[in-house]
């Protein structure tokens, strides 16, 4: 038993487990930020009075929401980088990191858009009518009246999207981000196969520990920010 525990703790000194989680947190942070911006823009397009913008927004969501993330991430590396030679960072590894961030962001933007749209549905139509009636054009009405209330109504679904994004960030392994958790786990299983169960346990628990606070925070925020009507 002591031997096993010693081997378990040795896993942490031999492999940079914490560092691997940190890479996934960074992937999630940057992809989440970009996805939030792009997703908000898509949601605006989908509720806009301009038919061509609505069509563009709907097409984006339909394409990216229904495409497997692994395909998007490998596309980023094999097509965007290798074929189209788009380089996002001079450093070899940083380039893979940012390609993965963009892949994660374009995929999750579709889900962010739908989360915000579900929030827009919590805003009574009279709010938009009142905004238009005092002479606010569409963008001003959206920015000042609709979106502030929609965001408050979409905290819970946005939290779900963030949780999915954090776990999906392991797909960056398919995009040659070698230092993140899924890649690290594969290396550990290969070189320390006698600790197979422990290795699975470490990574499963790591994600549980990261995700639980997100769930608690979004529930709390969702209640706190809810618009009283």
């Amino acid at each position: 038993m002591d031997d096993y525990l010693a081997g378990f703790t040795e896993l942490f000194s031999r492999y940079d487990v914490v560092g691997a989680f940190w890479v996934n947190i960074q992937l999630t942070f940057w992809a989440g930020l970009i996805a939030l911006a792009v997703g908000t823009l898509l949601a605006l397009m989908r509720i806009s009075p301009v038919a061509s913008l609505r069509l563009t927004g709907t097409s984006y969501v339909t394409i990216f929401r229904n495409t497997p993330l692994t395909i998007i991430i490998t596309f980023m590396v094999l097509v965007v980088w290798t074929q189209l030679t788009v380089t996002l960072a001079p450093d070899f590894n940083a380039n893979f990191f940012w390609l993965a961030v963009v892949g994660l962001a374009v995929y999750h933007a579709a889900f962010v858009c739908e989360a915000i749209r579900s929030g827009v549905n919590t805003v009574p139509v009279g709010q938009a009518e009142a905004a238009r009636a005092i002479g606010l054009p569409f963008l001003a009405a959206a920015r000042l009246v609709i979106l502030p209330q929609a965001f408050r109504g979409s905290v819970a679904p946005l939290g779900n999207t963030l949780i999915a994004l954090l776990k999906n960030s392991t797909v960056a392994a398919a995009g040659s981000v070698a230092t993140e958790t899924a890649s690290t786990m594969k290396v550990m299983i290969e070189f320390s196969p006698n600790h197979l169960y422990a290795i699975f346990f470490i990574f499963a628990m790591g994600y549980v520990i990261l995700v639980i606070p997100i769930g608690l925070a979004t529930t709390w925020l969702s209640d706190r920010l809810a618009v009283k009507r």
Binding site: E129, R132, A133
Partner: peptide
């Protein structure tokens, strides 16, 4: 914009008030 400008000159009071809730 022209519609927005003209609406600004027409005050509207709704049955369900529609005050900005936030």
């Amino acid at each position: 914009k022209g519609l927005a400008r003209l609406r600004a000159d027409v005050g509207m009071v709704f049955q369900s008030f529609n005050l900005f809730a936030h």
